[in-house]
Design a protein around this nucleic acid. Structure first.
Lengths: 150, 150
DNA sequence: CGCTATAGTCAAGCTTCTTGACCATACATT
DNA sequence: AATGTATGGTCAAGAAGCTTGACTATAGCG
């Protein structure tokens, strides 16, 4: 008979904020991936898809992407190469800085943005249902507070 | 003059649960890494360090690690190889299942576990201070609720 | 003007994780 | 007991993801 591990059998070290946060994030990400794959973006689970959520209607600077994502600029560059090849974004010259490149959505990209917003709303809906409107609002407020700390 | 992006200038798509969760998790992880590096484990930021927090005093099955970490069994195996080489854990035969291998801490590993628990408590202390005891408890409760959903 | 910081590119390589093929033990069915 | 299938683990090869190093071009400051 194989010993079955149950909830209380796990090592005591495990129940801390970090683990709970990690689990929640993993879960959110995999729900997003599943939703986008279902919406017709089979590569949604790949690394370059992470960039999409950082590009707004106004476009974003490559160097700002680097800061937001916590990756090297070369990594971001490579991920962007992929998205450009997919026809999701394109690099435009930045008028205010000749060194810069502005990343903007193509028509396909705008469609994907809309789709992914829809998926995100669906996921969030699940959170609201689980916690209730009021507590969900509190939850978000606390997350923002934690992330804003110096 | 380079255009400076401020808080309100970010694309509207960004302020969702997933992003906040991702940020919080990243931050927690990097605080843990920094703490462990400071405590004398220079490889704390590397992938194999993630395993340590899953090994309790009683040890854990390799296959249970696989389930908990969301990686392939081969990946877990490789990470474990690293930890064994570091002298942090060892593989023992599992008496209840001759196929299984039990991952247990060495003396060095137990020391690291203690150190990392200390670091985690310090980090959590920061969260408690930021939110207050009461709200932090709520926060954890909500995280657990979200993670327990079917 | 010259100096330093910033934005981006190209190339090479390491780390991390995956897939595929495989062996041994366990468990269920008959 | 005999057989089939699921589970636990290993070995090997390779793809994905990210890094470091070396370089070019523009910006901004003294």
């Amino acid at each position: 008979m194989v010993k079955k591990l149950d909830e209380n059998d796990w090592p005591e070290t495990l129940d801390h904020v970090g683990w709970q946060l990690w689990q929640a994030t993993q879960r959110w990400k995999s729900e997003l991936d599943a939703g986008l794959v279902a919406a017709g973006y089979p590569w949604a689970a790949e690394a370059r898809a992470n960039i999409v959520m950082h590009v707004g209607r106004a476009g974003i600077r490559q160097s700002d992407l680097v800061r937001r994502m916590g990756l090297s600029k070369q990594a971001v560059q490579q991920l962007l190469d992929g998205l450009v090849a997919d026809g999701i974004v394109e690099r435009k010259a930045d008028r205010e800085d000749k060194r810069g490149r502005l990343i903007v959505f193509t028509a396909t990209g705008r469609r994907m943005l809309a789709d992914s917003n829809r998926v995100k709303q669906d996921i969030e809906e699940g959170y609201r249902k689980a916690l209730g409107e009021r507590r969900f609002a509190d939850f978000m407020a606390m997350l923002r507070e934690l992330n804003r700390r110096p």
